[in-house]
């Protein structure tokens, strides 16, 4: 556990350190009748008692800065300590590059902590565009251990928008998707880049190349939810192009022909039919073949058949598919 590391270093109690001899610690006030007294370990209690003393005295000194580091090592979630650390940093006019190194060390074991990311953003914002590379590098390091890390992605998006550094972002998304094509965060970031990067021409200009990229990804793993949603997102605000683009319906049929992992292909076909796609004979045959291989009774209405099959192959969401069936426009 993170909190134990400090003990290994043979911590000298604050009351035995000469530089703290002039400070009287302030004990925790749980009120006269604490709801339920909490058992804290003594080193933590001592550190917090001294912290309270300098906090109440509003002492913005370098020993105060060191003490906040110690308190943070016990509990990096304590936002009051972080808050005070920022006040001290502002008062001491310290080189904030050192602060980034300090956060690096803390973050390696506590990267799910909101306070660390908030603090990091505060420092990076002060450093300005010079910090962009370092911040992108930092998030990359966190993401190399956990590629779906929500805070790291959120920070990275902020860095791109506030400080820049878009040049390699699409490549970075491609890299991550090569490692794990199921990474929804990377797909989300890809969409973020193609819709927001000032270096690209926007969604419509990117559509053609993105559609072929996504189609490949889907064919490799048709059970992957993310690229199916991404594909739909590429036609945002332009449903007609989506319905009319043969690549989309063709993709559905190619997956359906394999007769495995076809839930998203079938649901996309259903969406297309609901938005006015005229069913081809090929589509009817492919769906009929799925009916033959299952226990589903054939129906003359293609969309209805599709719903029947989905209800069968995705039983946990049977109610959803039944609802879709009840909402079908007449005679698709």
């Amino acid at each position: 556990m993170e909190s134990d590391e400090y003990e290994v270093m043979q911590r000298v109690p604050l009351r035995e350190r000469p530089e703290w001899s002039d400070v009287t610690p302030v004990p925790q006030d749980d009120g006269p009748n604490p709801v339920v007294p909490i058992d804290y370990k003594p080193e933590f209690v001592e550190t917090m008692d001294y912290f309270r003393a300098i906090y109440v005295a509003d002492e913005r000194s370098s020993r105060a800065l060191n003490l906040t580091a110690e308190a943070i090592s016990f509990n990096p979630g304590n936002y009051t300590v972080w808050h005070f650390r920022r006040l001290v940093l502002e008062a001491l006019d310290i080189d904030l590059q050192d602060e980034l190194d300090f956060i690096n060390n803390i973050a390696m074991n506590n990267s799910k902590n909101y306070q660390i990311w908030h603090h990091r953003r505060w420092v990076a914002e002060k450093l300005g565009t010079d910090a962009a590379d370092k911040e992108l590098e930092f998030t990359k390091k966190i993401l190399s251990a956990d590629a779906k890390h929500y805070h790291a992605w959120s920070h990275r998006q902020w860095v791109l928008l506030a400080l820049g550094g878009w040049e390699d972002e699409l490549d970075y998304c491609r890299e991550l998707l090569e490692e794990d094509i199921f990474n929804n965060s990377a797909w989300n970031q890809r969409y973020f880049v193609i819709t927001r990067s000032p270096l690209l021409e926007g969604l419509e200009a990117m559509r053609e190349s993105e559609v072929s990229y996504t189609v490949e990804a889907i064919l490799a793993h048709p059970e992957n939810e993310s690229p199916w949603r991404y594909l739909r997102g590429l036609y945002k605000g332009d449903i007609q192009s989506w319905v009319n683009d043969h690549q989309v319906s063709l993709l559905c049929l190619r997956v359906l022909n394999t007769k495995s992992n076809f839930v998203f292909a079938l649901s996309t076909l259903l969406d297309l039919l609901c938005h006015g796609l005229q069913p081809t004979q090929e589509a009817k045959d492919v769906v009929a073949a799925l009916e033959m291989s299952g226990t589903v009774e054939p129906d003359s209405d293609l969309a209805k058949s599709v719903c029947f099959i989905l209800e069968h192959v995705d039983p946990i969401r049977a109610n959803y598919w039944r609802w879709r069936k009840s909402k079908l426009p007449h005679a698709t």
Binding site: M1, S3, V36, D39, Y40, K41, G77, N78
Partner: peptide, 23 residues
């Protein structure tokens, strides 16, 4: 009713600053 009494150091340290949410 007894959760805060537990002698689990790390958990109690972590809970200290968010006791209001814990409550």
């Amino acid at each position: 009713l007894t959760v805060e009494k537990r002698k689990d150091d790390f958990v109690s340290v972590v809970m200290e600053h968010l006791r209001m949410s814990g409550a």
